[in-house]
Design a protein around this nucleic acid. Structure first.
Lengths: 178, 178
DNA sequence: AAAGAACCGTTGTACTATACAACTGAAATC
DNA sequence: GATTTCAGTTGTATAGTACAACGGTTCTTT
């Protein structure tokens, strides 16, 4: 995404969630409020990304962190290749290679050369890998539940829908390969 | 935030934005849909953070990147101190110190010892710093406008509101210091 | 089928972003 | 005035990445 949040973090939740009129958006000239919303979205998304990053390091002391993301994808797409991961996450091959090396050393993934194509490595989570994922997943879920406990089901639903829609535009506004 | 997005990236926009029923949330038992929404939110937020990070590096080749975030805050809070930045972004003093050193070397910020307290450094953006910020801000805004061009004003407004609300919980679910 | 192109993954090297700990200087407290 | 506390810097270490150069493999093309 060419709109990466990388700035304008000034201070996210400074103006309470009210200054974003929940209803009078398309009434007036329609353009000013639109821009205001865009700015808020940009700023908040940025703030989120920045904090997420910082927090990430604190949350998974057990596993080298980003490897975790990859492990998760490996579980989801059993038997995927390193190249798939790189393409999916917009990472360099070398980065993935090293992350996988780490995961293997930790005994969380197995990589076996594919029988059909000897260049390719087929990736699978190990028992340990699955266990780690399960635990972390549970922790995360609990954290989100706590953070969003005051939200109505309807709000959660809509928020989820918006996020899905936002992300659906793909990594760079592109159709999202993969 | 203990809910840091650090995993379950499997593949964000895989299920179209429709499988999140936009209206029938609080009707049924109310619990299953809630959990589903939570999972989606968790996953999408995670996906966003991951990609944002990757994209960030591609978007601001000009300036060492994260420094950008700090510069932005410095503009917003003229005359703030390095410690303020550290506290605000949950960064170590040393990290901020080095980032600022970089920004100063690039001529984007000035730091002067405060007259009243000789330990403190008062930070100000330079002309060049303001110019860089303005340019980047324009780029970002354009990118967001493009990405969200198909959204209705009402949806933008609501999405902005949700993000604000989400972030308002603070870096860790805490009352958000600062 | 031999040559060349395309591919997959690894390794060397370099850089950003961070953290933690130790240290210097300058208030503030006692 | 001695101690503690606070602001920033510097040393050292680590994660995460990228890019470029390779070493095998497989697919294409003559």
């Amino acid at each position: 995404m060419s709109d990466a949040p990388t700035d304008a973090p000034t201070d996210p939740p400074r103006e309470a969630p009210d200054d974003v009129s929940p209803h009078v958006p398309t009434d007036a000239p329609a353009d000013p409020p639109r821009e205001a919303s865009l700015d808020v979205i940009q700023r908040e998304l940025t703030a989120f990304a920045r904090r997420a990053r910082a927090a990430a390091a604190r949350v998974h002391p057990e596993i080298p962190l980003v490897s975790y993301t990859l492990l998760s994808h490996i579980e989801d797409r059993r038997g995927c290749r390193a190249t798939d991961l790189a393409a999916h996450y917009l990472l360099d091959k070398s980065t993935v290679s090293r992350q996988l090396a780490g995961l293997e050393k930790l005994g969380l993934v197995e990589r076996r050369p594919a029988p059909e194509d000897h260049r390719v490595q087929v990736l699978h989570p190990t028992e340990a890998g699955l266990a780690v994922l399960a635990t972390a997943q549970a922790n995360r879920r609990a954290a989100y539940q706590e953070r969003l406990k005051d939200w109505s089901g309807e709000d959660l639903d809509r928020f989820a829908g918006y996020l899905l829609r936002y992300n659906a535009a793909g990594p760079d506004g592109l159709p999202d390969p993969d």
